[in-house]
Design a protein around this nucleic acid. Structure first.
Lengths: 130, 130
DNA sequence: CCAAAGGTACGATAGTTTTCGTACGAAGCA
DNA sequence: TGCTTCGTACGAAAACTATCGTACCTTTGG
């Protein structure tokens, strides 16, 4: 199973922080106003709450920002893929003792995975080790 | 075709709660003492902390207990697989917009997944739809 | 019978995460 | 110029999570 030691990395984002990261991943570097608007499409959040979160994310080193303008632009320090890797790694380790195949088995048994997705997964695997 | 009736989900277990659930999944219905001993194999926890957590889990309806003896026996209400399904589902939805194949792709790109695991996953898929 | 060991109950505290009010400066505009 | 809008900064409340101390009851063994 090879539980790789978790790389010494940035602090794990919390739930609210993850919401923000996802907006930035999807739309690229953004202002607080922009992020807050996106969040409010899903749920009510006060502007200053979002601002605070983004400031905290910056303190933690998860985001950096361009302060050259009055409206600061926030940017994720690590790219989406790397951060998700960490989260996924942690998830697999926690719930499946590090076994990716166990996770996939669960995914297949879970009837929420569509035929389409299963087909896609097959293709991925076949192309994988050439 | 599987109609997924929106199952009413139990409240999502917290981190500490998940630790306890895992002990119960691995060893079956247990007393607080037993669970606490297992936890202490990994980290220090006071007995009453574990007790409290298990009481909370019971209040939340995640565990039930047999109180017919002085030493109560705690039992998960849902089975391991179902609970993990929910957690996995939530994870996929949150991070991969519900796309299982995206998750698997990440898993493969992530070089923490061993050759062995990849082989296992292939076998799973090939046996899956026949 | 009594003390010690071991069990549950539960409130209080500590720690973390999330939310927001308030202060205040800069920009926009009539 | 003044007023209103929009921005950041930041402390602190609120909400959630985790840990533990203390009280008190039951069982055990000498």
């Amino acid at each position: 199973m090879k539980v790789s030691k978790t790389e010494k990395n940035l602090p794990e984002p919390t739930k609210a922080e993850l919401e923000i990261l996802q907006v930035l991943w999807e739309f690229g570097p953004s202002t607080v106003r922009f992020v807050n608007d996106k969040l409010n499409a899903q749920r009510d959040v006060n502007y200053t709450s979002t601002l605070k979160q983004m400031q905290i994310l910056t303190e933690k080193g998860i985001l950096k920002r361009d302060e050259s303008q009055m409206k600061h632009i926030y940017i994720p320090v690590e790219d989406e893929s790397k951060t998700k890797d960490q989260l996924l790694d942690r998830f697999v380790n926690t719930l499946y003792k590090g076994s990716a195949s166990s996770l996939v088995m669960q995914l297949l048994g879970n009837n929420k995975t569509s035929k389409d997705d299963i087909e896609k997964i097959k293709k991925l695997l076949n192309n994988f080790d050439k």
